[in-house]
């Protein structure tokens, strides 16, 4: 079903990727030290207002990363963890790889926002492997970030492309870390991980709790 048809029938519309990134950015306060995972999480930085100082860490050794360069700023020596060219903000610094992960593991980051395949109601996150044995595994910094940051938030679509829920009772995919996710931002809702299950904090306008439940494979607290 196309989004237009869905909107006409149900009266609600999922957030697009930009709106999702902007929604997360709204919740990041000034002064936080933040790592943003590869993919959609990286987009969040574009929606933090310039007047709000948030310091972005990149695991390849940047503290105070800035946006993509203008042609004049472009420097082949300056890339982010996704290997895209970036800039350094005034006040930024570089650290080597062991220090960069000491920052992560040592609990010096206020927040890390990651993408995920699945999040379980106990806060387990699966985001590094689909368990496909034909493909070489690749983990990068995902497990260090999950285990080390003070808070883990996840940004992801509420369901897979074929409609399977990504919020589940137990992860089916291999875990990245057990019990670490605090909050999930999807294209449909904002949910907190609580001892009693996923607590719905916010839904897109027009969406009902029962419609959200249909798209979630774990109990929801409304």
């Amino acid at each position: 079903m196309s989004e237009t048809v869905q909107t006409r029938i149900t009266g609600w519309q999922p957030l697009d990727r930009k709106a999702m990134a902007a929604r997360v950015a709204d919740d990041i306060p000034e002064g936080w030290y933040v790592n943003l995972g590869i993919g959609m999480p990286t987009m969040i930085a574009d929606y933090v207002p310039e007047t709000r100082e948030v310091v972005i860490h990149s695991e390849n050794g940047i503290v105070g990363m800035g946006p993509a360069p203008t042609p004049e700023q472009d420097d082949p020596w300056l890339i982010n963890a996704g290997k895209q060219r970036v800039t350094l903000l005034k006040g930024g610094s570089y650290v080597h790889q062991a220090d960069s992960f000491a920052i992560i593991r040592g609990g010096h980051l206020d927040l890390c926002v990651l993408g995920a395949f699945e999040v379980a109601q106990n806060g387990d996150i699966a985001n590094w492997s689909t368990g496909d044995s034909d493909m070489a595994p690749a983990v990068g910094g995902a497990m260090d970030l999950s285990a080390g940051a003070k808070r883990i938030w996840v940004i992801m679509q509420h369901t897979t492309r074929d409609g399977r829920p990504r919020l589940v009772e137990r992860c089916g995919y291999p875990l990245t870390a057990p019990g670490v996710v605090k909050r999930i931002y999807t294209d449909l809702a904002v949910l907190d991980v609580t001892p009693d299950g996923f607590a719905v904090r916010e839904m897109v306008p027009g969406l009902t709790l029962s419609e959200l439940r249909e798209r979630t494979a774990a109990p929801l607290i409304g």
């Binding site: 080597h96 790889q97 960069s100 595994p137 990068g140 497990m143």
Partner: peptide, 15 residues
Amino acid sequence: ALEIVPQGTLAERLR
């Protein structure tokens, strides 16, 4: 042969 290591664990094993 492949040994896959989390990035921070790799850095710390080297350190």
